Amino acid sequence: MRNTVGMRARILLTVVAGILAAQGCTAAVPAPEAPPPTPTVGQPVVLDARVPGWETAAWLAEDAFCVRVARVDGKRSEGKENEFAFCDPAPEALDTVGPPLLPTKPMPYVAPLDPQQREIILVGPVRGAVTSVSVTMFGQTATAAVHQLPATRDRQIGAYAVWLPRNGGERDGMDLSDITAVVGYDADGNVVTQLD
């Protein structure tokens, strides 16, 4: 998977910055990053609002697949602990129109910042007529609806977000190899694509 190390480094940097800011160590917080790119067309699409006061959204920006977790409950204040945004190169398979496809395993996001949180949100893209996706990790399976993202060139691209239990003592409590199955279904519940 392209840029997995870069994304993990940004996640770790964001988590450390949030912890330091929460503990009042503002001198050690890195300089603010440039805002993520705006969508090429349309607006970010909300994928999940399970955590009260927070929303997870996704969008396409040029050749990037972007995910943002942001506070929306009116308690928002200045600081990175209120919004986490990540943009990584979009999988090459999303560049073309084609049959249903899960181009990659979903990626973990450790936001909102809560060390007591026992689950982690995983977000992934799809291509084609996929309406829901099931993800299995640590022997447990979660299923989520696919939300269509605005795209150019007649491409049909969507994204989904699932919550699964974390494991171990690390912040994200997982590795991509812990995801043992990703299955995409059509509107009739038929399997149309899968990753093992």
Score class of each variant (00 low, 15 high):
residue 99 P to E: 15
residue 194 Q to Y: 13
residue 77 S to E: 14
residue 168 G to A: 05
residue 8 R to D: 09
residue 43 Q to A: 15
residue 138 F to C: 01
residue 143 T to N: 07
residue 145 A to H: 13
residue 43 Q to S: 15
residue 54 W to Q: 08
residue 101 L to D: 15
residue 82 N to H: 15
residue 80 K to Y: 10
residue 80 K to R: 12
residue 41 V to G: 01
residue 12 L to F: 14
residue 75 K to N: 14
residue 7 M to A: 14
residue 16 V to W: 12
residue 82 N to S: 12
residue 181 A to Y: 04
residue 183 V to S: 09
residue 171 R to P: 09
residue 34 A to L: 05
residue 115 P to H: 02
residue 60 L to Q: 03
residue 190 N to W: 08
residue 62 E to C: 09
residue 139 G to C: 04
residue 195 L to S: 02
residue 105 K to V: 10
residue 96 T to M: 12
residue 119 E to I: 00
residue 66 C to D: 02
residue 17 A to D: 09
residue 114 D to H: 07
residue 172 D to A: 12
residue 188 D to R: 11
residue 126 V to H: 00
residue 103 P to Q: 08
residue 150 P to H: 06
residue 102 L to R: 00
residue 17 A to M: 08
residue 36 P to E: 05
residue 181 A to C: 08
residue 41 V to F: 00
residue 11 I to T: 09
residue 22 A to T: 11
residue 78 E to G: 13
residue 43 Q to G: 07
residue 37 P to F: 01
residue 7 M to C: 09
residue 27 A to P: 05
residue 10 R to N: 06
residue 144 A to E: 08
residue 47 L to A: 04
residue 178 D to P: 02
residue 21 A to D: 12
residue 11 I to S: 04
residue 183 V to I: 15
residue 115 P to A: 05
residue 120 I to M: 08
residue 87 C to T: 09
residue 129 A to Q: 14
residue 135 V to D: 03
residue 144 A to V: 10
residue 62 E to D: 14
residue 180 T to S: 04
residue 162 V to M: 00
residue 157 I to Q: 05
residue 15 V to I: 15
residue 124 G to Q: 00
residue 84 F to N: 03
residue 57 A to C: 08
residue 196 D to N: 15
residue 54 W to S: 07
residue 126 V to D: 00
residue 90 A to R: 07
residue 116 Q to R: 13
residue 96 T to Q: 14
residue 72 V to G: 07
residue 167 N to P: 00
residue 114 D to Q: 10
residue 131 T to C: 11
residue 48 D to C: 07
residue 113 L to R: 02
residue 134 S to N: 07
residue 71 R to V: 09
residue 66 C to K: 01
residue 189 G to I: 03
residue 38 T to C: 05
residue 129 A to T: 13
residue 180 T to K: 00
residue 158 G to H: 00
residue 79 G to E: 06
residue 129 A to S: 15
residue 60 L to M: 09
residue 68 R to F: 01
residue 144 A to K: 01
residue 105 K to W: 05
residue 132 S to P: 08
residue 107 M to G: 06
residue 168 G to T: 03
residue 173 G to I: 02
residue 99 P to T: 14
residue 90 A to W: 04
residue 29 V to E: 08
residue 145 A to F: 11
residue 120 I to A: 10
residue 74 G to P: 06
residue 131 T to G: 11
residue 68 R to A: 09
residue 107 M to F: 12
residue 25 C to V: 12
residue 153 R to D: 13
residue 173 G to H: 04
residue 184 G to Q: 00
residue 49 A to P: 02
residue 95 D to A: 14
residue 2 R to H: 11
residue 9 A to N: 10
residue 194 Q to S: 15
residue 59 W to K: 03
residue 77 S to L: 11
residue 93 A to Y: 06
residue 143 T to L: 01
residue 106 P to G: 06
residue 128 G to C: 06
residue 149 L to D: 05
residue 192 V to K: 01
residue 153 R to A: 13
residue 23 Q to D: 12
residue 112 P to H: 07
residue 158 G to N: 00
residue 142 A to K: 02
residue 174 M to D: 03
residue 2 R to L: 13
residue 188 D to K: 10
residue 54 W to A: 08
residue 155 R to V: 03
residue 195 L to K: 00
residue 178 D to Y: 01
residue 131 T to P: 11
residue 139 G to D: 02
residue 114 D to N: 15
residue 125 P to R: 03
residue 13 L to Q: 14
residue 111 A to S: 14
residue 3 N to P: 04
residue 49 A to M: 13
residue 109 Y to N: 03
residue 148 Q to W: 12
residue 138 F to P: 01
residue 155 R to E: 05
residue 180 T to V: 05
residue 76 R to L: 14
